[in-house]
Design a protein around this nucleic acid. Sequence first.
RNA 1: GCGAAAUUGGAGAAGCGGUUAACUCACUUGGCUGUGAACCAAGCAUUCACCGGUUCGAUCCCGGUAUUUCGCCCCA
Length: 435
Amino acid sequence: MFNLVKGTHDVILSEADKYSYIEQTLIQVAEYFNYKEFRTPIMEYSELFQRSVGDSSDIVRKEMYTFLDKGDRSITLRPELTAGVIRSIVNNKLLALGDIPIKAYYVGPCFRYERPQQGRYRQFNQFGIECVGVVSPYRDVEVISLCYFSLKMLGFKSLKLVINCLGDDESRNNYKEVLRNYFEKHLDSMCGDCKERFKLNVLRILDCKDPADQEIVKNAPKIEDYLTEKSKDNFNKVLKSLDELGIEYEIDRNLVRGLDYYSDVVFEFHYTSSKGINYGALCGGGHYNKLIQEIGGPKDIEGCGFAIGIERIASVMSDDSLFDEIDDSLDCYIMPLDISYQDKALEIATSLRLNGYKSDVNLEGKGLKGMLKKAIKLSSKYALILGEDEIKNNSIVVKDLSKETQESIELDKLIDYLDEKENENHSCSCHHHEE
RNA sequence: GCGAAAUUGGAGAAGCGGUUAACUCACUUGGCUGUGAACCAAGCAUUCACCGGUUCGAUCCCGGUAUUUCGCCCCA
């Protein structure tokens, strides 16, 4: 027996159904917003992530699966999908076609060397979108609302949007300098991580959870006082538009997010269940001004996107019972009572399948009782019994497992019979609804 | 990377330094030779994550390894 590699998990059976359901729902919403699918490689050159995600991020510093291939090239299993998608947009010169904006959605596995926990794995799946070529703050609103509707579609009721504005380059550079001056005075009393953050990316000190440091952060200069007019104006437009869309938000001036490429609008959606359990952030994203250029694309093209962890969503949805019953029932279960009838049973199954009936055949040769049990276990609507008499008369017994009735039907008329029964069922149930 | 706990059949799960590893469910077979339940009978862990140590003897105690879970860190 082999153990799973630490932090990996099998997604199988009903768990796989859940994942499909989540992904299909997300894809559907993205397509309604006119986003197109992008599938990029799982491996990229390491430098791509160093440049985009940023050397100061924890992802690059300690969480990447990086290795040398046989040609001594440094390869990394993607820790997130934005960088690869942007690279692909740049490499394929999509921006040169003047088709701005490029609206991309993506789903797939990502890899981070982290401590695994419930709903958090080293190989995990992300869904996300990127809108590249953003020239209006309302694009940011579109991205946020797409995210919001996706979560609503999945059944999350009480969502809270947490939002902040990091400003454009000019705003941020001004602000960073002021912050550096401020924190420099307090640095001695701050935690080791913060000392490191001070050197790498001073903004991330704002995120620190250490209570003592939070006190210092409280009195730190605020980004809102250093935003350029343009950044401030854009952010206000975004907020106003969110009001109009009825998306409730809370401004958190310390929301920074761990990836270095964000600028201007950054956001997260937080969820609290009806039972009052706070699950924290379900997804996050934001706007980026320089990322495209950083990856070798044209200057002054901006983008916006967000990503959702499928594992995290599935874990929260399971915990909060947000999954509807997923129907994996069977229409027909064919039970040949003797192995010599198995080929006939397969023939019947094929005909049923071609006519749209999800069918399975018992080829394990149990007794009739055992086969019936199996049919029930598979939650089949009908059990089709094929025995000596039926073979002789070229017929089959159709047993309705919910009604506990059965009839012997000529094989030629089997499909017609089932069609009729299905119609009856439908009209029957419709009748009930009308009354 | 740091700290803590856990790991017993297909599943849930008791158990104790000493040879039948309880109980429940599921499953298999038969009673019932072509019909779902119930009942009855029998079967279902040469083994308690793995490796080593202590011991006359280890599922139990000790050490190591693996994985999982929780917290930190972090992230979405």
